[in-house]
Nucleic acid binder design. Sequence first.
DNA 1: TTACAAATCGTATTTGTTACTAACTAGTAA
DNA 2: TTACTAGTTAGTAACAAATACGATTTGTAA
Lengths: 140, 140
Amino acid sequence: MTMTDDQLISILRDSGYKVTPQRLAICNYVLSSKEHPTAEHIHSEIVKKHPAISLNTIYQTMDMLIDLGLVQEMRFSGSSSRFDSNTSVHVNIICQKCSKIQDFESEGIRELWSRILAEMNVEPVGQRLDVYVLCDECKR
Amino acid sequence: MTMTDDQLISILRDSGYKVTPQRLAICNYVLSSKEHPTAEHIHSEIVKKHPAISLNTIYQTMDMLIDLGLVQEMRFSGSSSRFDSNTSVHVNIICQKCSKIQDFESEGIRELWSRILAEMNVEPVGQRLDVYVLCDECKR
DNA sequence: TTACAAATCGTATTTGTTACTAACTAGTAA
DNA sequence: TTACTAGTTAGTAACAAATACGATTTGTAA
């Protein structure tokens, strides 16, 4: 979920989080990324502008974003966590071979999912919908 | 997916796996469990009958069951993997507080899910459908 | 500007999982 | 039955992702 710095700053301050250059950089990157990056990946990106940034700060900022409901953590076997900034109902299409993740989102999906929820009669606080596939490149 | 020992033995032998008492015990427990147990949990159960059983053997047997397509591994933040022996399309209703997992399965779900797949136009090799909730006990 | 709570960085520690190896055993074929 | 062999087990070491910790720095409110 991309947003302006002002919007982001308001959200952080309103929740009692301080605004630091590192946080802004991390949030801007993660919230606009479609790659579902790992902590290492985020770190390798942010270190370009903040050479002293610690991997720990990445993890802590992710905890903050999760707390704010702006990011969801996805754990997998055999690889490190991926962070997904798409908080609306969507399907993660995940390649079993190369681990690439692609979001799929549509009105139809939301509608069908809400019917599934209705049938289960639960009040969701979140969801994770994964489909495992072989992507086009890996299929060859 | 509960099955007789004979069925299980056939499946293992047909795939080139040897049948050992440890494997039978682990498989019988995991395949009939509805609890989505952790490796530690499985170990603490099997150790009652096989006092020398190693945690490593649990993990290796889970790898075998995953290879056979009889079990799915689910990783989560802040806790160890859970092993799900329900391989049909279903929704995992997961309590965010106590981590209890309950399966929900119905013809309606399968139908709606197949429509979602059709809309995405993918050939799935598996899926994981999680809904995060607060269970009745934790809601109080 | 000051004071203080919070954030950062660097590193140590923890923890779930995997890798390794010697001893053992299931399955097979004589 | 016996002997062989490849696969399995138990025990432990190694690994890596994530977390905890503490000294220093920084944001923010008074």
